[in-house]
Amino acid sequence: MNPLGDWFGRHSVLDPVGPHAARTMSAGWIVIGVCAAVYVAVLVVLALAIRHARRAAAPERGPETHRRHVRVVGAAVGATIVILFAFLFLDFFTSRGLAEVGAGASRPLTIVVTGHQWWWQVTYEDTAVSARFSTANEIHIPVGRPVMLKLLSRDVIHSFWVPNLAGKRDLIPPYTNVLWLRADRPGIYRGQCAEFCGLQHAKMDFLVVAEPPERFAAWVANQRSPGRSPADPVTRHGQAVFLGSACILCHTIVGTPANGRVGPDLTHVGGRATLAAGVLPNTRGNLAGWIADPQRVKPGAKMPPNILAPRDLQAVVAYLASLQ
């Protein structure tokens, strides 16, 4: 599936693929249905009132009219109260149900998501420190297994939102927020920052890739490996240019001296579906354009333009693309 193809219709609150989004929407549809009925009822009464009162010869004022109004308005207020109480209980039990989805999990996968202006750092936790690894803007999860996301921010407030999977949760310094997810169908689901966080709030997307457990395990094993060593002269040259340039001040490639902590980890950048936080498909052309002038794609992004000779640029692109 092409994650950057037409995602309209699939990227939606109305198409849940996990228990959180599904429970939210099944309660949501009840509320929407009742509210729509109330709306129609009010408008119908308004229309009838207008028709009635336009035809009236004189205003009705008598005690009989008053008593009738008291009865009707009283009934309407009573109905309102009943409906609102029903909504309150519905909401309470929905929230409790959502909390239990996470609490009942025996073997959750724990992922730390850190929001940065304007990208997502994703770190897979593990009891063994050596088994932890970092990636960016792409979260792989196994289908059917509960995932506990620990949400942090290093700068301003962001909000983590994957409409198909669950409601949003803010990333607020200095707090650690928690969000539970579970995807019940394999697929690629889009997420986006939902709290205004500055210039490139609009282009702070990410992908959640839900895959069968075996494929997920293979992905994890690959991610734990250091960055692939260059195998041909072009990528060797690319690595040399990369390591000799300002890139390493911000980026990490495990297995090389590059261990900057400011920008996304590039150890397996070639294997990701997108560049620039879900904005560009990860093609060589886009990668070259992004490296040369990130400000054209995301004005205000923290990555500076890189003036490289065409041959060097092509080599760096080849090297990064080889980091599968």
């Binding site: 609150v13 939210t24 509210c35 729509a36 709306y39 408008l43 909401d91 409601g167």
Partner: peptide, 23 residues
């Protein structure tokens, strides 16, 4: 206003609000 008020009733619910908040 009644439409705005009723959608307000919808977003009073925590679960639904978490889906549509900031959209």
């Amino acid at each position: 206003l009644v439409r705005g008020g009723l959608t307000g009733v919808m977003v009073a619910s925590v679960a639904f609000d978490l889906q549509v908040h900031d959209t």
